[in-house]
Each structure stands twice: as C-alpha cells, then as structure tokens.
Design a protein around this nucleic acid. Structure first.
Length: 373
RNA sequence: GGUGGGGUGACCGAGUGGCUAAUGGUAGCAGACUGUAAAUCUGCCGGGCUCUGCCCUACGUAGGUUCGAAUCCUACCCCCACCA
C-alpha cells in the first residue's frame, strides 16, 4: 500500500505506478479537481471515462458543506460521491491564499469567514487532519500556508517556516488517527526564493519518510520561467522513489514542462473552469467555443481526441449549446478538457517508457507555442 | 372622423434646450481564467481618419425658433388605446 514503483526515466521525466487503497495510478497523471465532492458538471462515470485515475476533494469546502461528520456517517468520501477510485483531499491551505480578505492567519491556525454564510470557522493543522481522516481519501495533505507568487523573501520565509511547523503538528495528529487506509503528504513551500525552497524541502525530508511529496505555492502569480527554475532546483534533491505532486498545475503546456522536470502528479481547475467558460484545449492551442468562427462548423472539436465530445458532436452544435446557455455545453467541454490533460499524461508516459519523451514533448510544445499560447 | 398616448442606435428602453454619439438592459464580438467564493469576470459595441484628438452621420419625415434642439414650434407620415 502507498508504494511507488518507477518503470522508466528519461532525463528528469519519470514513468511510474502509485499503489493506493482504492487503486493504482500510472504516472505521469492529471488529477481532476472535485472540490465539493464533484468534478463540476461531471458524473463519476463521466470522469472515469476520461481515463482519470484519481480525483481531488477539498477539506475546507467539504467541511462547510455538507460537513465531514455527514460524509463519515454516509461511509466516507468514496461512498458519498460513488467515485470508487483513488482520491486525495487538499487541506484547505490553498484557501489561506485564495480567500485572502476572508481569513486571518495565526500560529495556531487560520480563522476563515465562511464565504457561504459568513460564520467564522477556525482551521488548525490538527483540525485539517481530523476532517480529512473523516473524509477518508487515500491521500491527505498537510495544512500549509500559501503565499502569492510575488511574495517578498520575508513573507515567503514566514509561510515556509509556518508550513514546516504545521507539518509537525499534522504528522503527529495523523499518526494518532492512523488507520492504515490513508497516507499523508507534505507540501514544500518557499515562494520563488531558491534558498527558501531548498530549506523547505530539506526540512520536509528530515521529517520523513513520506509516501509522496507535494510542491505547492506555484502558479500563483509568478512567471513560467520562475516556476520552471524552482522545479529544476528541487528536482535533484527530491527522493527518486517518491512520487512528486505539483499542486494546482496546470494548463497543457505546464504538464509537459512539469513532467520534463520530474513531476508525477498534477491537478488543476483550469480544465473544468475553462470548460464551463467555453475555452477548449486542442492540439496547438485552444478554441473559443463561444466564438463566431464555430458557427455552422461540422468539424469535431479536436479531431485527434477520443472523448465523447469530440467523437460525437460537431463544433457548430457545441457553440450553439453555449449560445443558448445549456448546461450540456459546460459538461461536454469540461469533459473534453479533462480528457485532453489525461491523454497528455498517457502520451507522456508512453513516450517515457519508449525513451522518446524529449523529442516528442519538444515538438508538442513547439506546435503549442507557435500559435501564441 | 374625434380624443388621448407614442415613434430614440440590431432589439427593449432612459433622456424633455447646452455637460448627448446619446444612461440602463438584451443580443453581438473579443479576452481572461492554474491545490474552484467563478455556468464567472473584463473590454468593445453608428461610420471614417493623419486616432490622448478630429470629421461625418444620427433620436419617424420636412421645415422653423435659437448662439445651440432627441428635447421647443408647425405640417405631414406611421403605431397604440378609447370614443363614434
């Protein structure tokens, strides 16, 4: 349980298999985001048919609604959602960042004002672990302190050191509650400052061993080159036999850039959010599904894609669904975008196993960037 | 035939002498979105140009009053309601 086996590497890129209580994940892999216990707009069957192997849920949101006690009473997140595969719950640390203005950070934890009903809720490292234990995902995440990508050294250091202190508390509470069915992954912080990142990773590894290590606090306002630099700085220090999870990333190109720098697992809301907003990813760029250019088009959204959307519906109909604001359009484009990222992971894996990843990904990225995206 | 109300940019609809190329909304067009406060948000939306400004056209039609009119006056056309 919680084992990770590397099948092949090519440069820093890796192909592996992660074994979890609810199933295996072949990496590199994209994990769709189901914050509220649902990948927005999609049924578990939809998600399964995209080839996604693991789904993410959120501690903070599920704590607010329906409340972890309800989920536990119903048999845990798997029974609650009927998703039978592996799951991971994020700790609510990202909400420390995204709900800035609705929260106050203290050493003990974070006081949030609920965006749902205005009530005040305190989330502590121990509380985040308790909630996640009740939710019962395969992987729980440490409660961390995310700072913006432009955060100066002082602020980034503060967040990084606090994350490390909270890591100790999370680990202790997790061990107290351990039932062998859930593992805990730490999160490396440190903003865009290499010295902080290094210290964060070293401090994290000292507290190990871990069944996985997450890199957090990226894609929060910093530039791509900076994100790549951080990944390159961390890669040689990360344990080879441990899966690496780059949190909150990303867009299609980000997946390949991350895989090339040794990342095994990704998650991102962009696939579903962009899907709902009418932006579809296609080879070489993206398509504005609402755009006038699609009117009357009988072409598939992405002729290279094998998803339900692309094998069934013409572009002109998908555009129509957005024009008339039918929910089917949101679902179909979200479905495609997830399949697009999942397939990108599958392709990357196949190329790593074949030793052709470098050339393939460079060509893919060249085609992608050629259209200015 | 009479009385009353009304005709504003693709549509709906404010505006009743200068700050009005004309509030809003809709439709249309474009863009943004990275561990989801997001089926959301932003921008453009009469035409042209030598484009931080200038010119042309425009509030049913044609005249008029005025330094200045979508706004006031006259005539005409059309729409709606009620009465014959």
């Amino acid at each position: 349980m919680f084992e990770f086996h590397l099948q092949a590497t090519e440069g820093a890129a890796r192909a592996g298999t992660l074994c979890l209580p609810h199933g295996r994940i072949e990496t590199p892999a994209f994990m769709p985001v189901g914050t509220h216990g649902v990948v927005r707009g999609l049924s578990p069957g939809d998600v399964r048919r995209t080839g996604a192997q693991i789904v993410l849920g959120n501690t903070y949101h599920l704590h607010l609604r329906p409340g972890e006690s309800v989920v536990r009473q119903m048999g845990g997140l798997h029974r609650f959602t009927t998703w039978t595969g592996p799951m991971l719950t994020d700790s609510g640390g990202f909400q420390v960042f995204s709900l800035e203005g609705l929260r106050r950070i203290g050493e003990d934890g974070v006081e949030f004002q609920s965006h749902v009903d205005g009530t005040y809720r305190t989330l502590t490292p121990e509380g985040a672990i308790e909630i996640q234990a009740a939710l019962g995902a395969d992987i729980a995440m440490v409660f961390d302190h995310v700072v913006p990508g432009q955060a100066p050294h002082e602020l980034a250091r503060e967040g990084m050191e606090r994350t490390l202190r909270w890591l100790d508390r999370c680990k202790r509470r997790h061990e107290e509650l351990a039932d062998g069915r859930q593992t805990l992954w730490p999160i490396v912080q440190g903003g865009t400052h290499d010295d902080l990142r290094r210290r964060s990773l070293e401090g994290t590894l000292e507290r190990g061993p871990w069944t996985g290590v997450a890199i957090g606090g990226l894609s929060v306002g910093e530039s791509k080159p900076v994100m790549h630099r951080v990944l390159e700085a961390l890669e040689p220090v990360l344990p080879r036999e441990t899966p690496r999870y780059l949190m909150g990333v990303g867009f299609p190109a980000d997946l390949l850039e991350g895989i090339a720098r040794g990342v095994d697992l990704f998650d991102c809301v962009a696939a579903t959010r962009n899907g709902r907003h009418g932006t579809a990813w296609v080879p070489g760029g993206r398509v504005n599904v609402r755009g006038a250019a699609l009117k009357g088009s009988t072409e598939p959204l992405d002729p290279e894609c094998d998803c339900e959307t692309c094998t069934t519906y013409p572009r002109g109909y998908l555009r129509h669904l957005f024009v008339v604001e039918d929910m089917l359009g949101l679902r179909l484009v979200s479905l495609h975008n997830i399949r697009f990222l999942v397939r990108l992971g599958e392709q990357a894996r196949a190329h790593i196993l074949a030793g052709t990843f470098d050339g393939w990904s460079r060509a893919w990225l060249r085609r992608h960037y050629a259209r200015g995206t």
